[in-house]
Amino acid sequence: MRRITMAFMATVAVVVLLFSYRTSTAGPPRGGGTVIATGAAPEGVVDSGEPSPQPTRKSTTARSVTVNGPAVQTRWGPVQVQVKIKSGKITDVVVLQQPAGNPRDAEINRYALPILHDKVIEAQSADVDTVSGATVTSEGYLRSLQAALDKANFRS
């Protein structure tokens, strides 16, 4: 009887340990919120062109500005973008950091990031739909982009 009790207790302990082990796909870190990744490009205005009022979509000046968004930590890795605005229009969005933990990340990013780029240029806003199959990366991309647009005082 004692052996059965010991075997049962050992089995329970092993099962508890297995269920408490957190894998890398278990979700975002506890506490939530935006986490700034280490090694990220500095956030804020990188190149402001000529000194003049902050750009807006309705601006008629030929002023250009380049702004880095924050590195947004997602459960798959950091996402950081840089936005280029000229004459009050978003002319380009460059990805500075993207999840790169495994080959699947690279495959998803090759597919999703160009789609996000084109959607943002067309909409002239960070208010676009996420890419199906790359929701987490899309959300990080759009959060970094919106923060960069806010720093540039860009209004769509």
Results as ranks from 00 to 15, higher is better:
30 R>W: 10
9 M>Q: 06
100 A>E: 15
34 T>V: 15
71 A>G: 06
123 A>K: 13
26 A>G: 13
153 N>P: 02
88 G>K: 00
46 V>S: 07
101 G>K: 06
149 L>D: 02
147 A>H: 12
82 Q>T: 11
16 V>F: 06
88 G>A: 02
77 G>P: 03
75 R>G: 12
64 S>A: 10
20 S>K: 10
39 G>T: 10
124 Q>K: 05
60 T>I: 12
24 S>M: 12
33 G>I: 01
40 A>D: 06
19 F>R: 11
39 G>I: 10
27 G>F: 05
13 A>L: 13
121 I>F: 03
47 D>M: 07
128 V>R: 01
72 V>K: 01
6 M>E: 13
69 G>M: 05
40 A>C: 06
54 Q>H: 13
85 I>W: 03
83 V>K: 00
148 A>W: 04
108 I>E: 00
154 F>K: 00
11 T>A: 15
63 R>E: 14
23 T>N: 11
54 Q>G: 08
96 L>G: 07
49 G>Q: 04
150 D>L: 05
147 A>F: 07
132 S>D: 08
7 A>S: 12
20 S>G: 10
59 S>L: 08
117 H>Y: 14
154 F>A: 07
116 L>Y: 02
101 G>Q: 12
122 E>M: 08
86 K>H: 13
106 A>H: 10
140 G>S: 03
4 I>N: 09
44 G>V: 04
35 V>F: 05
90 I>M: 00
88 G>S: 03
94 V>Q: 13
107 E>T: 14
91 T>N: 01
20 S>V: 13
4 I>W: 11
66 T>P: 00
123 A>N: 07
153 N>A: 15
88 G>E: 06
129 D>N: 12
107 E>H: 08
133 G>R: 04
63 R>F: 07
60 T>N: 13
45 V>F: 04
66 T>E: 09
100 A>V: 14
14 V>K: 02
153 N>T: 08
81 V>N: 03
15 V>E: 02
105 D>E: 02
65 V>W: 01
9 M>R: 06
44 G>C: 03
144 S>W: 01
39 G>C: 11
90 I>L: 01
111 Y>Q: 14
147 A>C: 06
92 D>P: 02
71 A>Y: 01
36 I>K: 09
105 D>G: 00
147 A>E: 13
91 T>L: 05
139 E>C: 00
108 I>G: 00
55 P>M: 11
18 L>C: 12
59 S>P: 05
41 A>R: 12
142 L>T: 07
132 S>K: 08
3 R>C: 06
13 A>T: 10
71 A>F: 02
86 K>W: 04
81 V>R: 03
146 Q>T: 07
118 D>E: 14
56 T>D: 12
133 G>D: 03
12 V>D: 05
140 G>C: 04
95 V>M: 09
3 R>W: 13
21 Y>N: 11
108 I>D: 02
123 A>G: 03
60 T>Y: 09
10 A>R: 09
146 Q>P: 02
67 V>M: 11
137 T>A: 09
54 Q>W: 15
114 P>T: 06
131 V>M: 02
54 Q>E: 15
10 A>E: 10
115 I>K: 11
141 Y>R: 08
100 A>R: 13
93 V>Y: 08
30 R>V: 15
138 S>G: 05
127 D>M: 11
47 D>C: 07
